[in-house]
Every structure is written in C-alpha cells, then in structure tokens.
Amino acid sequence: MHDQPATRPKIAISACLMGAEVRYNGGHKQSSLCSHTLTDYFDFIAVCPEVAIGLGIPREPIRLVGDPEVPQAVGSVNPQLNVTRPLIEFGEQMAAELDDICGYIFMHKSPSCGLERVKVYHANGASVQGSGRGLYAQAFCARHPDLPVEEDGRLNDPVLRENFLTRVFAYSNWQQLLQKGLTRHGLIEFHSRYKYLLMAHHPVQYKTLGNLLGNMGLTSVEELGPRYFSELMGALKKCATRRTHTNVLQHISGYLKRVISPEDKQEMQQVIGQYRHGIVPLVVPLTLLKHHFRQHPVPYIAQQIYLQPHPENLSLRNAIL
C-alpha cells in the first residue's frame, strides 16, 4: 500500500499531558497514550501557556469569569489577577510560530487550553449557564481553522482517536504536497487517493469535492487548493460509521470480483456482513481485502489512503466495531 510520510508529523500538546509538572498545584496530567504510545510516530511540541506568560509553579489557579462568549481569565482567589490579554496574545504568537504542526492535543476543562465545555463563573463564584473555551486554545484555533485538534480525554474513545489521527496524517500529506508545489495534476492525484476515505467519512462531501475538481475550469490552483483542503478537513472531521465503512468495503471488493474464486467472494461478503452487524471489528474485512489485493494488485486501489490512513502498528482500527 502507499507510503506513510517520510518525516514524522509534529503535534503540539499541552505540556502537562506529557508529564511536565506545570499545573497550578505543581502536578501533571500525564497521558500514557501521548507520552508513550504515540511518541514512536509523532514529534511532540509541549506548550504550557500559563507558565509561558509568567505564572509560577505552583500558582493560584485561574478561571473564566463573565460572558461565556468573551470571558475573562482571572485568579480564582484574587480576581485582580487578570491574564486574559496575555493568554490571547500568546495563543496568537504560538499560532504564528507553530506553522508546521499537523495537529494539537489540548488539556480538557482548562481555562487556558480547554476546547469546549470549560466552566465559566459569575464574579460571585456561581456557575454561569453555558460554557466557554480556553482563551489560549481559542486564539490559537482561530488562526488555524483546518488544523486537527482534540482534547486528551476524548482520545480514550477508539473512534475519536482514529478519526483525529487520520486527520493528522491527512494534514501532513497535504503539507508535503504544498512543499513540492501545488499543481492541478497534483491536486487531482491527491483527491484520487482520498476518494474512498472521503466516501467513508462524508458521502455527500465526497460528491461535492469530486464536482469541485471536475468543474475547476479556469480557476487557479492557488485559489482552489485552500478551498478544497478546508472542505476535505471538514469532511474528515465527521466520524465514519459502520454503514459508510460497509459501503466502501463493498465498493473496493468490487475490484476483485473477476479475479477471485466464488468461494473467496462468498467469504468476502460474509466477513463484510459480519462487520456490518457488529460481530467483527473493521480490521477483519480490511485484512482480508489486503490479502486478496496482494495476490491480485490493482494500482488504483493500492494508492487508496482508506486502506492504510495511519501506520498499521498503531492498531487504531482493531477496536472499531
């Protein structure tokens, strides 16, 4: 199957998740997934915005206060401590500096790094209805709207973990394409490799993006490329389902119908059916398909990202039913 990126993608991460003792109480929130499992495949760049803007370790905790849409970050004991502006400015600064990362893993519920559902309070300490986003994370993400981002806790879900890392590798592949210089041919070739992955994640966008490239006419590739990529990343954010995976497996198995025996065809359909009914995980029909394509290579299928969107040793699809 196709090659993975030659260089390891870079992922920025909240420093406490890598075991750095940078939290307000001098502790950490080490994630074994990030600090052990994933370090073989990614180069992590650890960032703690609260320490970076000059707050000490240990320190008074901060919290979000006021309007959930535009909260202030203030000290939970001493509300005169207001670090709203420094956190936002540091987010903008790091967004400019970290322009070669392919993903970001944030610490959940953090007033600086949380992506969603961060508690917001009234000045008197009562909880505000609704929730906010960490100020650093919000400022950073506003500058990189297509960047794959996720919170540490959600990565414990095998479907969300696989989805995030699929997007990280897609982002990395696109960056490599841009480094070579984007051409019309290169864009169409890139899309061709992502067709079945797109079909699994978002069948409607699969057709929309196909039409976008099919009707590019005189539109310049400089104009079309960013629009295409933004829509691709938006589509991949939607998690593939058992139904959409089954549809793709059926499409791909169609390339074998003239070359494998009736018994093998029957087994293929049986295994895809078992996956569709939740009896076996996704890796089972995929392994059988890859076996047959090794015996009967089809160049178009060999280049499909769907069959191997991330390194096999990560075993990300083993837990996906």
Results as ranks from 00 to 15, higher is better:
residue 237 K to V: 02
residue 146 D to W: 05
residue 237 K to G: 09
residue 166 T to R: 11
residue 210 G to D: 09
residue 135 L to S: 09
residue 125 G to N: 10
residue 223 E to Q: 12
residue 132 G to P: 05
residue 226 P to T: 06
residue 186 G to C: 09
residue 208 T to M: 12
residue 206 Y to V: 00
residue 228 Y to D: 11
residue 127 S to E: 14
residue 160 L to C: 05
residue 149 V to T: 10
residue 126 A to K: 14
residue 129 Q to G: 13
residue 174 W to S: 06
residue 175 Q to W: 03
residue 215 N to W: 00
residue 181 G to I: 11
residue 199 M to A: 12
residue 223 E to L: 11
residue 151 E to D: 02
residue 170 A to W: 00
residue 212 L to G: 12
residue 227 R to V: 09
residue 150 E to M: 09
residue 200 A to K: 01
residue 143 R to W: 00
residue 171 Y to V: 01
residue 149 V to E: 00
residue 145 P to M: 15
residue 238 K to N: 05
residue 167 R to I: 11
residue 155 L to V: 09
residue 216 M to Y: 08
residue 162 E to T: 12
residue 137 A to M: 04
residue 158 P to D: 04
residue 146 D to E: 11
residue 125 G to D: 09
residue 193 R to T: 12
residue 163 N to P: 03
residue 169 F to N: 01
residue 131 S to D: 02
residue 242 R to P: 03
residue 187 L to M: 15
residue 221 V to M: 02
residue 154 R to F: 06
residue 247 N to S: 14
residue 188 I to S: 11
residue 133 R to A: 08
residue 169 F to D: 02
residue 232 L to F: 03
residue 207 K to T: 02
residue 137 A to W: 04
residue 155 L to Y: 04
residue 146 D to F: 02
residue 218 L to V: 14
residue 180 K to W: 06
residue 126 A to Q: 15
residue 139 A to V: 05
residue 142 A to L: 09
residue 140 F to D: 03
residue 168 V to S: 09
residue 136 Y to D: 01
residue 240 A to Y: 04
residue 209 L to P: 07
residue 239 C to L: 07
residue 229 F to K: 11
residue 222 E to F: 05
residue 155 L to G: 02
residue 127 S to N: 06
residue 150 E to K: 02
residue 204 V to S: 08
residue 129 Q to L: 11
residue 228 Y to Q: 06
residue 217 G to A: 13
residue 193 R to S: 09
residue 211 N to H: 12
residue 237 K to M: 13
residue 189 E to V: 15
residue 242 R to H: 06
residue 147 L to S: 12
residue 211 N to M: 02
residue 204 V to W: 06
residue 194 Y to K: 11
residue 205 Q to T: 10
residue 234 G to P: 03
residue 184 R to Y: 11
